[in-house]
Amino acid sequence: MEFKTQLKTLFNSDASQKILAFAGLIVMFVVFSLASPNFFQFSNIVGILLATAVNGVLALGVTFVIITGGIDLSVGTVMTLSAVMTGVFITNLGLPIPVGVLGGLLTGGFAGWVNGTVISKMRVPPFVTTLGMLYVAKGLALVISGLKPIYFSDNPGFTKIAMGDIAGIPYAVIIFFGAAIVASIILNKTILGRYTFALGSNEEATRLSGVNTDKWKTAVYALAGLYSGLAGVLIASRLNSAQPALGAGYELDAIAAVVIGGTSLSGGEGTILGTVIGAFIISVLTNGLRILSVPQEWQIVVTGGILIVAVYADMLRRRQS
């Protein structure tokens, strides 16, 4: 009886979508491995993991926002702004690395908090608010950096944050998995996670239940901002520099990863594991097609096609149940 209930809960949950996405990922692995001997190599797998880390971290934050029924278009450029601020703190101001990293994280968190406040208090739609923030953060990154990259050459320890390794696995990858575990705990075990789902499922009902929906919505966007800040630190560390012109377009990859992972754009449903799988699908695809010498332009076309197929498959599943 107990087991049956659990089984039912599992089936009603998004588990079947995850299985579908995971199966897709496995199929890609097999196909690319058969197609090219260069694909299933340790160095290439590490390359895929590393390529997933930054987009994956961004996608984790976006998952929360999308589950509330919102959208965050600003994560890419907020990431850039956070990278630049990290550079300012460490290189320009000469602050210790941990302080600089914290500054980078808080920059992202602050931008997210502003998004959340504008959305919940001023009632500007999330699409517009975060589109505005996309430009603001992009502009600020250019202004603050003076259009030039900020290098971390004087602080050789900084690059270790992403590129140090355990048994050949870069820290960036480990940080990504750690961040995903934290995100999963927040989403499933904490009050913030519960209200994330509640907001996306029926915001008015949540408000009428006495929940301060404005506060929790702001918290969700701030959390997405924090994840952008973390992505900013990772990308700066990996490139050993803060590149102010980078970042636009990352938000779309992040949203694509979330959607491929089965999170519903209409809110109320979604999982962290799904998002992680979604992020891997995108980078495996990009990597595999590159190894098969498919031109980059075509890689983009294929990614778009996969996005639509993934969502279509998910909708077929939903219609059946």
């Binding site: 519960r194 789902f197 509640a198 499922s201 239940s209 006495g210 929940v211 109320g268």
Partner: peptide
């Protein structure tokens, strides 16, 4: 005024 995606228990104790 219920949240369709949440369980009955989650709905009843939402906010507390």
């Amino acid at each position: 005024n219920l949240m369709p995606h949440l369980t009955l228990a989650q709905n009843i104790f939402i906010g507390r």
